[in-house]
Design a protein around this nucleic acid. Sequence first.
DNA 1: AGCGCGGGCGCG
DNA 2: AAAGCGCGCCCGCGCT
Length: 577
Amino acid sequence: MSLEGVQLTLVESPGELADFLEWLGHDRRILGVDIETTGLNVAKDRIRMVQFGDAQRGFALSYRDWRGIIRDIFARYRRPMVGHHWKFDSGFLARDGITTPWERTHDTMPMCFLYDSLGPKSLKAASALHIDPAAREGEAQLKKAMAKNGWTWATVPEDFPTYWEYAALDTVLTAQLAEKLWPLIQPYREAYDLEMAVERILCDMELRGARIDVGYCQDMLQNLLWEHGALLDQLAPLNPHSAAEVIAEFAKQGVTLTKRTQSGQLAVDDAVLQHVGTPFAAQVVKARELKKLMSAYFENFLEQRDGDILHPHINQLQARTGRMSVTEPALQTVPKTSFVRDAFIPREGNKLVLCDYDNEEVRLMAHFSRDPGMIAAFLENPPRDVHLDVSIRCYGEQEGPAKRDRGKRALFSKAYGAGVAKFAHTIGVPESEAQRIYNALEATYPGLQTGMEKATRIVRERASYDHAETGYVVLSDKRHIRVKKEKAYVGWNALIQGNAAAVLKRAIVDLEAAGLGEFLILPVHDELMFDVPESDVAEVVPLIEQTMRRDDWRVPLTASAKVADRWGDPYRENHSE
DNA sequence: AGCGCGGGCGCG
DNA sequence: AAAGCGCGCCCGCGCT
């Protein structure tokens, strides 16, 4: 495939429209579709252009001029279509009341990911790799022209050739990419079908959005602003957010710092400041905390809302493991305090339902390690506390329960590759002590070590076999997650996180099939948030738990739901968790 | 003024 | 032989 001889057209006159419609009637394997918008925000931005194309030709249509025609095309076109990141385009069109035929639509983004989970996922980068290095030229040229003329995506003239050619070419790239990748991803059809089904549901979730309590956010932001301002006044002229100034202040006060950052500078992170323990160190910690709460959370909630609804971007294939991420705002990183989570409320007359998998990653480790003790623990009813068992083996029946968290930290540290030194440092104990906990872990669940070694070996062997820089692990839905050979030990993490991600995606599809899709609001790795009418809650909650439950692993993957009036309810101090 | 990076910190 | 993994967003800072 290449871009040579590709013909691009801006449809302006009725004659050009007739030519375009005649072309649209031709027989072709797949029709590429794309839209251009004034920006990325589905609540605030507009569609400017809609483009159609195949491997040879691309057409750009002004949305303002041809909206009715465009609507008809989506209603009538009966053959397969393909977009790149179709959730974006489909969401904008759906918002305008234009329904698109998901059941006949493909997406080259999941194709890219399934072909190579570490490869490029953007249309331009993937096209440059798979089709023609010239695929990037239009974008570069357009950016230059926009900068020169002070244009944005909202103001660049529709008839500016570089703009509409760039727009029309995207459909050609998408169509060519689809033709090239389609045969290559056939071994991963199960995963592809799953991703397409998930994408459609995520599209609806983004449009639905999550409701926030605007007044609460405004009040909390005011309080934070005041408190942070007062702290800055106290410290002035010193800026507690400048590491250099903080380091200089410690030097002046005679405090010696030793920990270094990755690049060799003196570290002044939370652990260091806690260790220093002076009032000034505490003030720096406090200032950072307040700033984070303001800037990353409450300010963003208020800035990014549409009325009282947040429409976050749910990035389906962002992580190399196939995990999803949520941005604008980053709702997967909301602090686990009622203070921040109280910002999230259900719609009028509704309840929030929060359902997460119980110890999902540990249960998957039990499955893949085949460790008899770990498997047995999860087969008991109720399940044994695997972390407590490690702690008791290390510290005894008396002291063990109080040190359960060390058992838990040991498992996750060890499982994801931390050495004894790193583990000792993160939990703040001498290395000898950390080694004792690791020994207890190994004695309790010896299968963990062998499982990790096996995953590492497999990644190395596959990389060698392919003469490649990367090997891979295979997930339950047959997809490959690539892992760099020089960090082959990451294979275990990829296996666990990747399968956890696939489990959640399958659950989302099953929930929709069970009629619960309309309540879905947000995924958080091993957890789903629902917004459910109060009158349906009693019926829906057990259905959610049953639908999410998985019994096709060596241990059951169970899910537990909580009902709340605010997201913060389960995190309140008097709550018994 | 805008960009990229490192440090730091929020989550699973 | 040894190696914590996966993200997003903020700030300060140095650069263009």
